[in-house]
Amino acid sequence: MCLALPARVISIDDGEMAVVALEGIKKRISLALVEDVSVGDYVLVHVGYALHKVSEEEAERTLALMSKAGVLSAEIEEIEGAEA
């Protein structure tokens, strides 16, 4: 449900419109639903609207969490391997 993609804001009009870029694709979208967005921010784009800012910090935290789960499981495997 709800196809939405993170894209980088590359320019903002006087009004509520902005241009976002995604790998060389540029699309005009509306900023009517978000506040405090600046050029360089990543926003989640859905049906031509920015829905939310994307937090870089949180994205990295989530990836770190995923890696940690992996590290844990590697340790577990090692222990289990040693027991076997």
Binding site: R8, L22, E23, Y42, V54, S67, A69, G70, S73, A74
Partner: peptide, 21 residues
């Protein structure tokens, strides 16, 4: 694509799969 490709990583998927199992 930032915030997309890194969340489709095969290596992390395998690690998470082990953790889930």
């Amino acid at each position: 694509m930032k915030y997309i490709d890194e969340f489709r990583s095969h290596d992390l998927a395998e690690k998470l799969a082990t953790a889930i199992t």
